[in-house]
């Protein structure tokens, strides 16, 4: 896990293999960062779930594209009263919209619920897909009262 600081805030970054067994490591990272920023317990749990969903979606895309060696990068940018989390994968040629509805081996509802949860749990969300580089989901959560 790396961290850097400059005038724009402090960045903490983690790279994990695109495998379900490592998503828990990304959730632990968010637990640490969000707790340190004094987010209330419920919001820490919301962020953990949102990041878990973003990682699980990346794994779905990786499997769909048959790219088992992909990586997921989780980057937290800590700023005054604001946490920005970027979950990026290196899955090339994937379609993030189609992957939303893939849901792995489970019924399609799983993928749709994943997208819905991310929308609800954070204040802002943006998904950018580049067929030659991968997908980045950017989520923003504001610290209330700051």
């Amino acid at each position: 896990m790396d961290s850097t600081s400059n005038g724009d805030g402090t960045a903490v970054e983690l790279k994990i293999p695109c495998e379900p067994e490592y998503v828990g490591v990304a959730r632990l990272m968010i637990l640490g960062v969000a707790s340190r920023m004094s987010f209330p317990y419920d919001q820490v749990e919301d962020l953990r779930l949102a990041v878990g969903e973003a990682c699980t979606s990346a794994i779905g895309r990786s499997r769909q594209a048959g790219q088992d060696k992909s990586e997921i990068t989780v980057k937290c940018l800590i700023q005054e009263g604001k946490l920005t989390i970027q979950v990026s994968d290196s899955v090339r040629g994937s379609n993030s919209e189609a992957a939303k509805h893939s849901g792995g081996s489970e019924p399609p509802e799983g993928g749709e619920i994943s997208a819905l949860l991310m929308e609800i749990l954070v204040d802002e969300i943006r998904t950018e897909s580049d067929p030659t580089a991968g997908t980045t989901v950017t989520m923003v959560k504001y610290l209330e009262g700051s």
Binding site: R48, G52, E53, G103, E106, P107, E109, G110, G111, S114
Partner: peptide, 16 residues
């Protein structure tokens, strides 16, 4: 202690 969309999907599948 934690339930995500995959867990929810499994429960929906079981219900169906």
């Amino acid at each position: 202690t934690y339930l995500d969309s995959t867990g929810l999907g499994v429960l929906i599948g079981g219900l169906k």
